[in-house]
Design a protein around this nucleic acid. Structure first.
Lengths: 132, 132
DNA sequence: TACACAATGTTATATTATAACAATTAACAC
DNA sequence: GTGTTAATTGTTATAATATAACATTGTGTA
């Protein structure tokens, strides 16, 4: 079989929902919201999430155990991800900064390890919450 | 009360164990290993972990739900952490690279968010696993 | 058609983490 | 020392996150 071009039913249902909410959402919250579409079990959600992460349609916010749609339309595979997270309102934005990504892609650690992926999470206060 | 200078009993037990194993370890694995010291319940471990993370004695590897002792003796508070993770053997090393940390501390995102913390995880193959 | 593999459906269970509440201990002001 | 406050502990129960195992169905293609 050639590399999958189209999403399967469950994958599409999960992706549609994640794209609709437009903010990080947790697996069981997705489950509750797509039960009317016929997805009944956690595993169905997790399997779709795994695939969507793998093909770069969504990202996992590790520190929050939540998933968010990828905004970089050309992001095929999640090899280089960076997010800003507001510790007050929990708003999460994907950072797309070519200088940052270039810097990190080229980073060489002292142990000479070969990197093929990274994930960076910044924490702080977003503009709205800074004012309060 | 002044800021705590010494660790409490449970905190010390948990820290001692994490420092001894010298690699990332999970909360329930810690629990199993310190039961002989009188720690019986998950909460006792998680409370100690929370405190130790807060004061910078250990770090959490978010993508692995594991905890590791801080190697930077002067790392008082975990505001700037970077790790390399081997996806084959799961070896984790803390990266201390002053250029990298300076670059990230000064990073300004386009939304003008004020950062006070970041966590970066690199994934790849360590030297040993590259050879195989 | 037949093969291989991806995806699904389903039940059960493993793993990670917190809520709630009572009791005890430690630091400090007086 | 006494009283006050906050940190820590102990304990039971439960919430939240994630995977194992296995049977079945769909889909592309040789």
């Amino acid at each position: 079989m050639l590399k999958q071009e189209t999403l399967s039913k469950n994958q599409q249902i999960v992706l549609d929902f994640i794209e609709k909410v437009n903010e990080p959402i947790k697996a069981y919250s997705i489950l509750h919201n797509v039960q009317k579409k016929g997805i009944k079990a956690p595993l169905q959600v997790y399997r779709a999430l795994d695939k969507l992460v793998e093909i770069g349609k969504i990202h996992k916010i590790e520190s929050r155990n939540a998933f968010v749609a990828c905004k970089n339309s050309n992001c095929q595979i999640s090899k280089a991800t960076a997010f800003s997270i507001c510790e007050s309102c929990e708003e999460v934005s994907e950072i797309s900064d070519s200088k940052l990504s270039k810097y990190l892609k080229n980073f060489q650690d002292k142990a000479g390890m070969k990197f093929n992926k990274y994930n960076l999470e910044f924490f702080g206060l977003c503009k709205k919450c800074s004012i309060k």
